[in-house]
Design a protein around this nucleic acid. Structure first.
Length: 442
DNA sequence: TCTGGGGTCCTAGGACCC
DNA sequence: TCTGGGGTCCTAGGACCC
């Protein structure tokens, strides 16, 4: 692999959500900080200091307080509007620096660097690191290698050892083998917690030991996915480069802050999620042919009767219309819900997604006039909500869920709990246009 | 008292057909 | 009572990611 000229670079925000918060609250620097999931349920991001204390990812917040009663930890509710805005700025800087760009998640992107050697790649990485830090205040780490899996491993080194100055490059076989021996097997991208016990029982505890087996053995002992990871670690690029493709399924789901046992309250929630799915569909210019809903009781409560169910329906004509999808979801809910159970979580999933422009209408259902009207209504709602803040206008079955409590959410006990939220310095709820006031009265 | 949310891909097994 | 075999398609569930 020596002398290669095409590299993958992964750019990964350090402790993303915590770093977003710190940009606007510098007093949080050098303190143990955690960011919590919806309803302040679990820890979803930790600062370096919080990790050092032993606070684990996904740990329930109440348990963290129990286990670390004396620790000086700042806990914050998640503020996704802020994180989306901040990471969007980071990503646009990366895109400028590398045209071959694939956003992988909210805080991570891959790029392809062509026609460069290892030294030039390293220089590119250090430059983009300082550009991003200066431009946004976000610390990032960069891993560069001939495959994505190796780039991810390099990125871990960049994060862990200050000597790399936030950018680690694997550009020779010697470096690759040396690195693999230092990577614990559970840190390998693609090796999850289910595979771990088996690998450990076979004496495989580092990426190096795994990579030293034959591909035939890996294939017969595991599966095609694990074999691909093996190839990647051995320098063969085999994970396809996903362009920003439209999503094949879209899901909106929430855990409620309290159990819900009445149909009307549950329907309001499901209508919210259905409307959100429709909005996401329109945003990627798609329509969906299938709508599913699921509801679940609290499986942690062994003292309560349990019920969980998923139901689906096919629309006569694929749609992204809020009203159509909300109606379909509400019908499903009627069949799904059972008396005598308290539900804790619900969600709506739309699948069989296709392009809006290439839509295949059903011969008997398709009514062009009706669809044009629905489309115009949704377009108008989307425009107003984009301009004035999301959920300025919603349809009647729904309820407001605006986290600042300015909408009707304040009057409903089912609004998501975000007690510890920070202000939104980049996307302000607080001074939206006066139109919003009137809109709430519709 | 308090336990997240949103995706992707693969596989095994059932349904169905000839 | 006996009750094939092979192919395809679909779905649920598992595993992984952040």
């Amino acid at each position: 692999m020596d002398g290669i000229t095409t590299f993958y670079a992964v750019i990964d925000c350090d402790n993303c959500f915590v770093s977003c918060e710190r940009v606007f609250r510098p007093e949080l620097e050098r303190r143990a900080v955690v960011v919590l999931s919806n309803n302040d349920g679990c820890v979803v991001a930790r600062s370096r200091e919080a990790k050092a204390l032993g606070i684990r990812m996904g740990m329930p917040y109440y348990q963290m307080r129990q286990d670390f009663p004396e620790a000086d930890v700042v806990a914050l509710s998640s503020n996704y509007e802020l994180y989306a805005d901040m990471t969007g700025r980071v990503m646009s800087l990366v895109r400028k620096a590398a045209p071959d760009f694939m956003r992988y998640s909210i805080d991570e992107a891959f790029c392809i660097l062509r026609g460069v050697d290892g030294d030039e790649a390293k220089k590119w990485g250090e430059e983009i690191h300082s550009t991003i830090l200066k431009g946004t205040g976000m610390p990032v780490s960069i891993g560069i290698a001939p495959t994505k899996t190796l780039a991810k491993a390099a990125c871990r080194f960049a994060k862990k050892y200050p000597g790399y100055r936030s950018c680690c490059v694997i550009d020779t076989d010697e470096k690759r083998l040396k690195a693999l021996d230092l990577v614990p097997i559970d840190d390998v991208w693609g090796i999850g917690r289910r595979l771990l016990p088996r690998l450990r029982s076979l004496g495989i505890d580092t990426a190096g030991k795994f990579a030293a087996h034959t591909p035939q053995w890996v294939r017969s002992s595991f599966n095609i996915v694990t074999e691909r990871t093996w190839k990647e670690l051995n320098g063969t690029d085999c994970i396809p480069n996903e362009r920003v493709a439209p999503k094949k399924s879209i899901c909106t789901s929430r855990t409620f802050p309290h159990l819900i046992d009445d149909y009307t309250s549950l329907r309001t929630q499901v209508a919210n999620y259905a409307a959100k799915c429709a909005e996401k569909l329109r945003k990627q210019n798609s329509v969906a042919a299938t709508v599913s809903i699921f509801i679940e009781t609290n499986h942690f409560r062994e003292d309560l009767p349990q019920h969980s169910v998923m139901l689906r329906t096919t629309l006569p004509t694929p749609s992204a219309a809020t009203i159509t999808i909300v109606e379909a979801a509400a019908r499903l809910l009627r069949d799904a819900m059972r008396q005598g159970y308290s539900y804790r979580r619900a969600g709506v999933i739309v699948t069989d997604i296709s392009d809006y422009d290439g839509m295949q209408p059903d011969l008997f259902d398709y009514n062009p006039e009706k669809y044009t009207k629905l489309r115009r209504l949704d377009d108008a709602m989307d425009r107003i909500n984009r301009l004035c803040g999301s959920e300025t206008i919603v349809i009647g079955t729904r309820q407001y869920t605006r986290p600042d409590g300015k909408g009707k959410a304040a009057r409903f006990s089912t609004a998501i709990r975000r007690d510890l939220i920070s202000p939104c310095p980049t996307t302000r709820w607080t001074d939206i246009l006066p139109l919003n006031k009137n809109a709430e009265d519709i």
